[in-house]
Amino acid sequence: MENHTKSAVTAQAALLILPSLFGFFCTDVPYSAAGALGMLLAVIPQAAAVFLLTRRREPLVFPPKLLQICRIGTVLYAADLTVQFRGLCRDLLLPHCGIMLLLLGALLLFALRQPENACGRAAELLLFAGTAGLILLPFAAFGTLRGIALFMPDSIAAGFFRELRHSGGLLLIPLLMQRQSPQNARKGLAAWIIARGLLLPLLVLFGTMQNGRLRGSIGNPFFLLLARTPLTEAIRTDGFWILYAFACGGLSIAACLRISARPHTKPLQTLLPYCAACVLFRLLPPARLLLTTAALLTGAALPFIHQIKRRCAA
C-alpha cells in the first residue's frame, strides 16, 4: 500500500512538472540572468500559496463545484498547450505539421482510453529520459561557458510573465491532490516548485552562459543552446530533443484531458469541448489570452478561498 502511495505521488508530481517543461520548450523569451530571476519571482508567490494549502492535517477535499471549474480550466489549458504545440512545429520548420497534429489526435484518443495512472507513469519515464539528456549538456559545454554573459542587461518582466503563463499546474493541483494526505500533497508540490523555481531557472542561466549575446534571433533559445552544444563534433542531439519536445507536448495535453475527465466519461465527451476551444483559440488569439488567464487565476484563487472559508467555519 505504501509503495502504491509513493508511486502515485511520484506520478502526480511528474504530471504537474511535464506541462511546465513543455512550456519551457515552447517559449521564445531569450535566456538571461534577469529572465531567470523573473522566473524565480513568479514561482515564489505560487510556492507560498500552494504550501499554505497543505498546512492542515486533514486530507485535501474540495467541493464538486470547485472541481468542475478546475476541469473546465484544465480543458482550456490543454487547448492553450495545443496552440503552443502547433507553434513549436512551425518554429522547428518541420515539413509535416499536419501529420504531427494527426498523430497528436491519435495519441489523445489512445490516452483517454487508458487507466487513470497511465499518463503519470509515462510522464515519469519522459522526465527521467529528459533529466538524463540534460545532464549531458554541461559536459558538452564545458570550456565554452562565459560567466560574464550573466551580466547582460535585460528585463526581469519577460521571464516573470513567461513563468506566470506556464502556471497551469495551479489548475491541476485541486484535481490531482483531491483526497491526498497533506504529507503526500506536500511532496508532489515540492517537486513541482523545485523543477520550476530551481531547475528551469538554472537551465536558463546555463543557456545564457553558453549562448552569450546571441539570444533572440532564433525563435527558441533552448534549441539554439542545443545547436551551440553538440555532444561531440559528430554527434548532435537536436533530433532527440525535437522528438522529446513533441512527446512532452502530446503527453501534457493528453494528461490534462485525462485529469479533467470524470471517471466514466466517454473520450469523445472530453475531446469535443477541447477541440472547440482549440478552434476558438486558433481563430481568436485574444480569446486564448483572456480565457487561459482567467482559468489560471481562478484555479489559483478558488482553492484558497475554499480553505479560508473552511478555516473561518472551523
Binding site: 501529420i99 498523430l103 491519435a106 484518443l109
Partner: peptide
C-alpha cells in the same frame, strides 16, 4: 484502442 498506435509509421512519411 491499439489502432491509433498503428498511425505511428506516418512519422516516416517525412
Amino acid at each position: 484502442h491499439v489502432l491509433p498506435l498503428l498511425l505511428m509509421p506516418l512519422l516516416l512519411c517525412g
